[in-house]
Design a protein around this nucleic acid. Sequence first.
DNA 1: GGAACCTGTATGATGGATAATACAGCTTTG
DNA 2: CAAAGCTGTATTATCCATCATACAGGTTCC
Lengths: 284, 284
Amino acid sequence: MKSAVEPLKARRIYLLLRDRIVAGELSPGARLPGEPALAAEHAVSRVTVRRALDLLDKEGLVQRKAGSGTFVHDTRAVRPIVADLSNVLSHLIDMGRSTDVRLLSFGYGVPPEPIAESLGLKPGERAQRSVRVRLIDGEPFSYLTTHVPEWIGLTYSEAELAARPLLELIERSGVTTERATQAINATLAGPEAAAALDLEIGSPLLTLTRIVYEPSGRGVEHLHALYRPDRYSFHMDLVRTGNDGERRWSPALGWPRTTDKSKSEKSKAGEKPTRTPRVIKQRS
Amino acid sequence: MKSAVEPLKARRIYLLLRDRIVAGELSPGARLPGEPALAAEHAVSRVTVRRALDLLDKEGLVQRKAGSGTFVHDTRAVRPIVADLSNVLSHLIDMGRSTDVRLLSFGYGVPPEPIAESLGLKPGERAQRSVRVRLIDGEPFSYLTTHVPEWIGLTYSEAELAARPLLELIERSGVTTERATQAINATLAGPEAAAALDLEIGSPLLTLTRIVYEPSGRGVEHLHALYRPDRYSFHMDLVRTGNDGERRWSPALGWPRTTDKSKSEKSKAGEKPTRTPRVIKQRS
DNA sequence: GGAACCTGTATGATGGATAATACAGCTTTG
DNA sequence: CAAAGCTGTATTATCCATCATACAGGTTCC
């Protein structure tokens, strides 16, 4: 068995720098602090900084010029996709970007207890489990694990699942979907997800867990989605509702907009990032 | 300078197991796979698995019984706070949980370019930057970095900021807030955030970036929030709108019912009061 | 009781990440 | 041109996470 210990500090610095670049804090063309400076800043040796920069370089995020410095390269290719809170990204397709789905796994079995519970399954009852990866322009950005009660799952084939949206298939089976709940969170990539998303284990991931209910209140779909944060983020517009006494933000329903100039977001140096919303025009 | 190489595989396994526990996949009382099994599953040595389990143990998530096995312990203490998408968690306060805010940093300066842009500042214009940590029941769960145009920031004092919601202070200054945009994402904890949130560097974090605009369209607040995913998550209810042709999910405006996780009946072996300190300091 | 698990504990070996240091060649600046 | 940066490239040494292995002592179950 090969032993281990993988880059840690190096990868960390790589990720931090990467975040700052993708977030727009370091604009294209800008020169990064020198290797000695970065080494001092992060209290590591220059060799380590160097490894981090090599990773950025290999990824094309940065261009190194001997004798001159390291410069931020084209970031446009790395700009994340933006979806609204209901997870709609159809506007991307309209923009000519191609999305593709790859079905990694398909089968029936007894799901873990919490999922069974959310689907209202009796102990021992089976469900269909599928794992899919969604790609945009050939690059994977989401890793979806879905569970559907067996009696629904049986109404469509594996091939159909690979080709059509699951929810559409569910509705085709005669089930009406009406309500859903979802939770957004963050995790680290485990081995399978990391492999599927072309990431290293331990990379941060955005998480979305959604349960779709039919009118009777029975769950018909349990979705667990993992997103690469550098390629996907949730975005929403809020409006102020309820005058003073009860001031609160509510989602702006007419949602389409995003017209304004690239409003980027980021915070201070050496901090956490967040993505830059994409300027998107949408049809309709 | 102390050299390095920190636990990697061990921590990874720790985090993965932790996720499964917190997510409910491994219910309280359940017995984890044995150390040899886990070692095989993750292709590591038993020593490494052991370290991961030690971390879980120290955190109180798991109880180890020599000769018997390792069992999932009380998870209720770890259940994350749930907030709706507009970031309201008032219902928690209603539940008797106390929140507290600690002001870590306060000052004025020229913000990084993307933030300046979002606030509509001219190059060189200054803004107030504050860093706060929010605690619930004494435990930190969010790390907030806010930027406000100087002319607004000057209308309140540092003490006021530490005591009252920022948005309230902004509105008190005469500014009307009407619209906001926010993006949700994920990252890894950097050094400062990790320290403030009592985490290790490299832990996953939920990210929320919100920009609040006044009616004229000028930004008046830039918020960058980092949340511990094990203590905080976003939750929302959706309803199906737009019949077939344009089927889509929209946020349910009525208040979401909290995800009641009280599956009371499960009292396994003698319940234990275990009040475990939350320190995750590893290495001694 | 005893087999078959399990967790606790100790050992030595190893290899890869990191540190520390030195020097080359290029670029920019004055 | 020369000085002062910078990146490229070695070399050597250290450290420690991990591996592999062995054995102890507890628990479960037949």
